[in-house]
Amino acid sequence: MRKSDSLQSALNVLVLTVLEKRGPLHGYAIATLIEDLSEEALRVEEGSLYPALYRMEHSDWIRASWVTTENKRRARVYELTTEGTKQLADETGRWANFSAGVNRVLQIA
């Protein structure tokens, strides 16, 4: 796994997981949710988040639609597709492997 791949993959896993657990969300909500859930340990850069969203949308892992939020603002919300659910399983497995590997190294070293 190359560096950018692993980070990219991590962001993908996070976004997909959040979408799977919390249903259709818009970009801001995704970013804040990840930050809250990680107790501010992870900070999502918008410069990475949106390109990742667009890429996953283009790959049909997620789909987007415009809705009006409770504070009367139009927002583009994303939800998981079947293809995305499959990808999530794959990526989660891959991520688990990767992080387990990193952990082992950290413990031994």
Binding site: H26, G27, Y28, A31, E46, Y50, N71, R73
Partner: peptide
């Protein structure tokens, strides 16, 4: 247009949160 609106929305929301 769509992307501009989406991103502006994001910024607005964060500003409101702040």
């Amino acid at each position: 247009r769509e992307m501009t609106e989406e991103m502006q929305g994001h910024i607005d929301e964060r500003a409101e949160a702040l």
